[in-house]
Amino acid sequence: MRELSYAEALRECLRQTMTADERVFMIGEDIGIYGGAFGVSAGLLAEFGKERIIDTPISEAGLAGACIGAALTGMRPVGEIQFMDFVALSMEQIVLQAAKIRFMFGGKATVPMVLRMPGGSGTGAAAQHSESLENWFVHVPGLKVVMPSNAYDAKGLLRAAIYDDNPVIFVEHKLLYRTKADVPEEPYEVPLGKSKIVREGSDLTIVATSIMVQRTLQAAEQLAQENIEVEIIDPRTIKPLDSAPIIDSVKKTGRALVVHEAVKMGGFGGEVVSQIVASEAFDYLEAPVRRLAGLDTPIPYNRTLEYHAVPQVENIVDEARKLVQGGY
């Protein structure tokens, strides 16, 4: 099958969806001639024109609000926040408006909008261009939060997000844009709210999100050489969370580890752990349920410090080994 990068897969989804559906348009900072900070919309301006690939001024609140108004009046906007960090400037519109409008209006309105935003560290861009803020949105009723970990899911999840009738926060990862996977040419949807078992194993369940799925896959190869078989689950949509496959897996393996890049304190991993220990899987646990996540510190500029601020493959290997070998 044909390989595409994560960025190319997103672009193909956008191109196909916009070609087929006049309600879909893109809006964001430098998405036109520049093609977006990470090149996702490269070439789309020439194809669709300025009316549908809309460059905004540096107005994160304004562009999020423009998506809301357009969505309320029949469009399906796809907004791009250039770096996830900048979504802090859009929070009023997302949290106090978009997320609540349907409920506040008694179910009489829909807000079918997607806000795409690249999160994550690893590019040397320091503390204001490297954050992983997804859990801010998990805590807000009315939103959905999607985190594709590979090019195939990126294309299918984006289509599902565009056709969802709710505001969707679509969190991409900067280091994944160039990673490749087999991606079918025809349009397809990966449904929101469906976890995926990425690798089967019997000794330990690892729930990982976004780039941590890739790092966990590498860790699992190393662990397999030590006869430790890891089962990896990628929730893909962290809100709503499809926890049943996670609980089933923990019942099978008796051990669980959650890995994400965002800061551990108050992070999404706490929710996953809570759902595991509150379920029937509790009776099957043979070890404490653990989390491996970002340190409670801003992302530093220095590359060595940056590397150690978030989980790396060797950290996952160490933690998994310790869990399976009775180190806790």
Binding site: I54, G62, G65, G69, A71, L72, G74, Q97, F105, K108
Partner: peptide, 28 residues
């Protein structure tokens, strides 16, 4: 709110409705 009457909602946030108005005009 009543979208059938063209009312995109009262708003509890001071200034909160202006960006929505821009979006509805962009749709137009």
């Amino acid at each position: 709110a009543d979208l059938n009457l063209g009312i995109l909602g009262a708003n509890g946030i001071v200034g909160g409705g202006l960006p929505t108005a821009v979006g509805a005009a962009l749709s137009s």
